[in-house]
Design a binder for these strands. Sequence first.
DNA 1: TAATATGGATAGTGTCACTCTCCAACTATG
DNA 2: CATAGTTGGAGAGTGACACTATCCATATTA
Lengths: 225, 225
Amino acid sequence: MRISELSRRSAVPTATIKFYLREGLLPPGRPTAATQAEYDETHIRRLRLIRALVGVRGLSVSAAKEVLDAVSSVKTDTHGLLGLVFGIWPASAARESGGPRVVGEPARPTGEADGTDDTSDTYAVDALVSAMGWQITEHSPARQAITQTLHTLRSLGVEYGWEDLLPYAELAARTAVLDLDQLEGQDDPLDKAERAVLLTFLLEPALLALRRLAQEAESAARHTD
Amino acid sequence: MRISELSRRSAVPTATIKFYLREGLLPPGRPTAATQAEYDETHIRRLRLIRALVGVRGLSVSAAKEVLDAVSSVKTDTHGLLGLVFGIWPASAARESGGPRVVGEPARPTGEADGTDDTSDTYAVDALVSAMGWQITEHSPARQAITQTLHTLRSLGVEYGWEDLLPYAELAARTAVLDLDQLEGQDDPLDKAERAVLLTFLLEPALLALRRLAQEAESAARHTD
DNA sequence: TAATATGGATAGTGTCACTCTCCAACTATG
DNA sequence: CATAGTTGGAGAGTGACACTATCCATATTA
């Protein structure tokens, strides 16, 4: 099929499809002439995946590209596959770790305005990880996210340590078991990778939503007793 | 203190402070003259909270305003407080529920391009909620987020129903118990509201990060067996 | 062969979170 | 009390981002 049919069938405007092609999110079609190319079902599928990651999950286009590249890079190496997928962190983390997105300002010299240090939180996360008995890559972006959260909470005067996160970590471990179980069926490494991506990224908003619902229910339950 | 000291102590540029004042995120200082106002510790605290919600959690400024307004609106009404806080959904959900953010396009008539319907997923979420025995407001934004996720997964050819979310919901329920426990100490309703906001919103990235770490660990564990 | 569609490149748009510039009204200093 | 530096407030400007629109030299279709 050509681009207009691809557009119609995927409900993505042709201009946007061209944009995704340019950004390398969508692989080019098979060229049949100088100004003609042929697309197939895989392109429709890929487009839906892109829209899901960007639109539903809210990933930036560049983050989505990272994710998709990781999925495509899976040839036969079933081994590092999941580590690769699980190691990807949405690009928004970049602006998180560097503080609020600053554009023009030449990094004002006054670093921490309140004297709190970040290093102690790094050790706290190490303690948490080893308390759970987890084998984790040294420089996982997820580690930084937790460090950041602990640091922020502390700077806001909330007493919060890694011990407080431990019970959450236990629940996260069980969540991970569920997640991995969902991948058992898939034999084709590419399908497995795609499913891992979908269940990891697309489930994130749903899991947060479940927490909210549960909070509301728990709050109601405690108030009516 | 005046704005320059507030800026120095909070590490937020004065221009940005002025912006937050204009947007209503930060309450105005006590005016001492036509072009002079006095700020205090509460403003520093509020600034840190804003930066945490916007910078760390990644809320939009308008979403942060909603959150902050909700916290401030708590006078003595300890009752609906938590429901109010838990019911807030980041503004990004708005663009999620409406599909990818479309700006110029006049809403192309071709609705669902692949024929899948959204209504069935709405019932699925109802089933999930009642299976958990949760008492939830009818039009909670969190419901929509889950509906959306189920719908997206289905449109991508992944067989996924509310039954698959049930075990996650059980874990979410336990998470909520932890969350609510953390609020028990606070007696002052305003402190309680602020703590609820912090632990709900700021913990979200950390919880997702914990899942990633747990996934990596679980994946490693399964592969070395 | 004329009307329409396509791939590719370039430029433009709307939104967002700031950031900069002005200016009249202060305040601190000599 | 003169003057240099600071404010609050308003409005315009900026850079990043995710598209979206316009061109144009082919290609295809009627």
